[in-house]
Amino acid sequence: MKIAVCVKQVPAKDAPLHIAPDGTWIRETDISFEMNEPDSYALEEALRLKEKHGGEVVAISLGPERAKQTLKEALAKGADRAIHIADEEFYRLDPLAAAQALARALEPERCDLVLTGLQSDDHGFGQTGVLLAELLGLPHATIIMSIEVQDGSLRLKRELEAGWFQWIELPLPALLTIQSGINKVRYATLKGIMAAKKKEIRTIPRTELLPSLAPTQKLERIYVPEKTKKTEFLQGPPKEVAAKLLEKLKHEARVLGSS
């Protein structure tokens, strides 16, 4: 089975975010980046499918130069090769353009299965995978929590709201968007990291795949959201803060007994 996995590089979870002067992205200096969380689950799932059924895993990322680091991580974990769609200003792309670039790079690969995460932690469009499925003409299923391959088709567990699930079946080739928690993600081993050095990362400029842009949506500005509730902040040494909080909960909010 030939499997492509879309991995996006996003700011690390604990990175302090500052809005860049042009107001549409964050300042990228001094912060670290990591593989988007659901994408690391998608990668793990691809590696497990390959281990079980044989084949090849191709990792693909659209992003600036730094995105190569995420592709190297995918290679170190066991992906066979990688495609980097280079665009220093990738953050200006609308989701349809990003999906078009990914689709054009993936078309000639003729994969049996394409995996993406269900949502990115930075833009959070929540749609790139499904857009890609339509552009590649593939059937798709979203928010997947388990994959079984049965000759020529897939049996999938889809997550729904409020603790509900659904079994569904799809013919191959197909595209799936993967939810966090579907598996236990592996760490890269030293051997894997060494082996990755010999693996191919092919770079294609985004402008080669998608020379002109016809944006369908425009990000005007990003900003720190206004608070909707008046939060009372309690300060002081731990002991004092704890006492203050319990006092407030008893006498102000009246949510604790005052015994």
């Binding site: 809005i19 949506q217 990000l219 500005r221 720190v224």
Partner: peptide, 8 residues
């Protein structure tokens, strides 16, 4: 962050 977005 919040974001203001318009259609094009």
């Amino acid at each position: 962050t919040a974001a203001d977005v318009t259609f094009a």
